[in-house]
Design a protein around this nucleic acid. Structure first.
Lengths: 231, 231
DNA sequence: AAGCATTTGTGATTTCTATCACGTTTTAAG
DNA sequence: CTTAAAACGTGATAGAAATCACAAATGCTT
């Protein structure tokens, strides 16, 4: 099967998420493309095409078996063949992620956490022991881990990323707000919440609707500093 | 100006993010569309069109003034006219967000936090006092707050959302992994990290490249439960 | 059993997005 | 001063994505 386009993957995840809630509530085992479409604001045809793309066949006049849909989606992403992952950085964000119980549904199993704060080393967070950074590389090597979740402070992220790569990591889920350079064959997925924030801001800004002010400001010379507030 | 499409907004944010790092490092005050394009893997023409869409004019043979670009982008999103926001839920995630110093650059100012855990009420997190949930509605009303950040447990999120709406909130940045129902005029932006996770999973799964297994599984009847692991 | 309503699957069409190609402007060099 | 190179701005074009339209299939009702 040729690789699925990102936009399709995104919708598949939305279907999967909704169907999880759906089966928890309703006691029905089939769903139609228009039902899904209505809830998720996606055209029913699109739903059918997406399902077709991952080899799902619906039943005329009935719809799709929820159970089959979920299974097919899990298969596409490999959710039922969980990859072990390590968490690097056990601060607030690392803690929040470690204690999020929903990841199992997405095939994620965090098997170890690493932090260089001696006070944290040795403690357990939802069953996962926090180890010193020193132990990281041997641990990854020993267990053949391919995925790492990075929640370290920006200052050390690149250094840590280099070490992860040299230990054999093939994918980094990066929550540290910085750009990482890694070899071609290592996947970086940056989680930038600023994008979501920006969309909210744009909406609120649109409510204001003050076009003259905008133009007036743009007309002025740019005397303010470029980067008024620094992270 | 007609509203900008989401895909443009997304690129604008990527430009803004990069230019922040850029000016911090280099000591140059202009940048060309191809420089930006190379770094962000965006076609230079696209960069020029995006800049054109927000009223920016470049200079032939020179490029764009970084300072002007940043200012125009801030203007589009309203970043230099910060909206006060309240944080609801002061758990690990709430803490992580509250202590993230980068938000100021995106026009976000968190002015209060609310939690129903008596142990947390009265404490301060990076200068913001945690108050009881009771105080939430009057506080929002009194200060005319329009934006809320929701990091509560799924079980209470909808109830909280209802209260936020009735207090006058116009946009909710939702980190709680659940679907919220709110009136038409209230914007919900859901922050679902599962999407990022799924993309990483898809990549790793692709490395495996085991097509026969996939088809074999799909051919079997669907005897497993639909929702094998529950959050 | 027949007819009707509903739903799937898919080719055709439309709409949106990204890229190309090229004229224009500006700086720098010869 | 002239010419060349580099960058912008934008109409034209190609490529993706979403939607439409309709045949085929299936279940329900009478």
């Amino acid at each position: 099967m040729e690789p699925l386009r990102p936009v399709v993957l995104e919708r598949l995840i939305r279907y999967y998420r909704y169907l999880g809630e759906f089966t928890a509530r309703k006691n029905v085992d089939t769903i139609t493309s228009s039902q899904l479409g209505t809830v998720l604001h996606i055209d029913p045809t699109q739903v059918r095409k997406d399902f077709g793309a991952i080899g799902l066949m619906g039943i005329s006049r009935v719809g799709y078996e929820v159970c089959e849909v979920c299974r097919a989606i899990r298969l596409v992403f490999g959710f039922d063949h969980p990859y072990p992952a390590v968490m690097v950085g056990a601060g607030n964000l690392g803690n929040a992620l470690l204690s999020y119980p929903g990841f199992a549904r997405y095939g994620l199993r965090i098997v170890a956490a690493f932090d260089n704060d001696p006070k944290k080393v040795g403690t357990f967070i939802t069953g996962v022991e926090v180890q010193g950074i020193r132990s990281m590389k041997p641990f990854i090597r020993k267990h053949g881990i391919q995925m790492a979740i990075l929640t370290t402070p920006v200052a050390v992220s690149q250094t840590i990323a280099d070490r992860l790569v040299s230990a054999g990591i093939k994918a980094i889920w990066n929550f540290s707000p910085t750009r990482l350079s890694v070899p071609e064959d290592v996947l970086i997925r940056n989680e930038h919440i600023s994008l979501g924030l920006a969309q909210v801001a744009y909406h609120l800004n649109g409510l204001r609707e003050d076009e003259p002010r905008r133009l007036a400001i743009l007309a002025q010379p740019c005397d303010e500093p470029c980067n008024p507030m620094e992270k």
